[in-house]
Design a protein around this nucleic acid. Structure first.
Lengths: 193, 193
DNA sequence: GAAGGCGCTTGAACCAGGTTAAGAAATGGG
DNA sequence: CCCATTTCTTAACCTGGTTCAAGCGCCTTC
């Protein structure tokens, strides 16, 4: 597996010395998953941050009725991981699963702390990353409250142009906060003009 | 105005040397607002991060229909500020208003960048702060999609036990993503057993 | 102290989206 | 290749929440 993507992504936000880059590469653990495999089960303490190199992961949780509610999709270049579990060391309520064959790098919790302590440039990098992610989450919250399901579907299609082709629609519906049946209605309206 | 609270809040997450503390204090600008005053209008570039020392602010935006949609309330000890406007230097779509007489510290954008460059401990502090805020936002997103309005109202009352007494109910309704009329109905059901 | 103006409530009609159930289409494993 | 399971769609009906319109209490302000 090739660590070009992750290093390039980091360099888009902060400069890295050869030493910093080498240290990062040394602690990253490459893992591959087949479509459908569980990357991280619910109920365990999150092992660390995961960077998607190729493929697609989804993070979800199982609600009171046993339905799987999708929190986010992570495609190439994205970070995922249960931040709450990582900072409190409590078991995660989220699970993560590969929706396609995927290559990821795991940045184990303990190693990440080492990385942050030794090289503050990574504090900066993650500060910026979390800041950006916060903006995205704020926007989704606004959409959840003031857009209709159909508008959210539009915006999903724009944000993830390829996902709809290989992600089961029931997960897309879940991500949008609607039932698969209602997504079906929206899609029919689209195709029949 | 007294900077004990903000320093204590930062110290809960990272250690500060006297020098770091002094520099921070030197660049913070204390401002007070009367109830109802605009802290930050929409359409301007965000001036920086705002830390609430006392009182209460609300951040909202005005949607297509001219309705004010509340994004968040910020009480003593909270940071607020338009992260998107700050990082892109685009005009903010959010406005912030004081819901009660309030004392805040403004950390101006340029000064914040200086602070982060000189003292990486603040990169760490904000990394942790944004990380925690991300967890909160994730949770609200889950609530928006899988809780009923009534459950969201419960959780609002737990999170902000005092707010309901002095915040106009129409803003509470907006924060919950419902109309004032429907909040009224929920409340009636509560009081009449 | 009358006249607004604003925030809150009420009720009735209405709609976006959910529920249930059943069939059609796709997927996958032996 | 075929059967079993899962996923997707359709349709009829249901409900949480909205919209609209009116009334009420409580500040202002003249």
């Amino acid at each position: 597996m090739d660590s070009q993507l992750i290093v390039a992504n980091i360099r888009r936000h902060v400069p890295l010395t050869p030493e910093e880059e080498a240290f990062l590469k040394a602690i990253l653990i490459p893992i591959t998953y087949r479509q459908g495999e569980i990357v991280q089960p619910a109920g365990e303490i999150g092992p660390g941050m995961i960077h998607v190199n190729s493929g697609c992961l989804m993070t979800y949780y199982t609600d009171r009725d046993g339905d799987e509610k999708v929190i986010q999709f992570a495609t190439a270049g994205w970070w995922t991981g249960d931040l709450h579990s990582l900072s409190t060391q409590e078991p995660s309520i989220f699970a993560t699963r590969a929706l396609a064959d995927s290559e990821v790098y795991l940045l184990p919790d303990v190693r990440m702390n080492e990385l942050l302590e030794r090289y503050p440039v990574f504090e900066r990098y993650f500060r910026i990353t979390f800041q950006n992610s916060l903006v995205t989450h704020q926007r989704r919250l606004i959409q959840a409250y003031s857009f209709t399901a159909e508008e959210r579907y539009d915006s999903f299609q724009q944000k993830y142009p390829h996902l709809e082709q290989f992600v089961p629609l029931k997960y897309v519906a879940s991500y949008l906060g609607i039932t698969p049946e209602f997504l079906s209605k929206i899609r029919r309206k689209r195709t029949t003009h």
